[in-house]
Design a protein around this nucleic acid. Sequence first.
DNA 1: GCGACAG
DNA 2: ATCTTGTCGC
Length: 208
Amino acid sequence: MWGKEDYLLNFLILFQRLIAKNVKLTHLGLENVKTLCAVDVAYDREEGYAVAVKQEGDKIEYKITKGKVTFPYIPGFLFMREAPIMIKAIEGYQCDLLLVDGHGLAHPRKSGIATVIGVLLDIPTMGIAKSKLAGDIVEENGIYYVVINGEKVGVKAGKYFYSPGNKTDLQDVIEMSKRGYPEILKIADKLSKQAKKDKNMSSDYKIW
DNA sequence: GCGACAG
DNA sequence: ATCTTGTCGC
């Protein structure tokens, strides 16, 4: 039903080009980030459990959103599967920066899920992925850049890939990569996987 | 045709 | 992502 030759994918490519055209690669400056957020999703068949985690100083809170996720995972089009529920999960949270599990600019059309969410919500986002989707790794002055079409679109640090989503730049992701894999993403991952196990959860607001 | 391919 | 035991390594 969702073949590569499907006209829908051609349409989605047009959508991604529009998103890429509207990306703002401005410098955020991690020192200005007081409220940091992250989102991740876990699955149980067709049931998706998205968790948005918000951190401000020592205060950490999170919100769980459960919902049907039927669109399949297609490399390059992850946003169609996870962006809807992620956006729903982050709803109501005001953050200086949102970390998304996946790529941002380090995408064939510079339109990874972190970029799509950032542009649609007009907020600063950064994509952090556990594996590569596209590009070559080129070392320069100790930094391993992800290069696509001769352009530096992100960096690789350890086993993770960092790339700007929206309203962030290469310097921001380089700084973030030097801090190591964000604890808040580990929390989001852990909570989402925990949520799908707890069959009797209330799918809403909780605080630590 | 062959290899690559976020979660 | 998810299915899954023991096991190699820091």
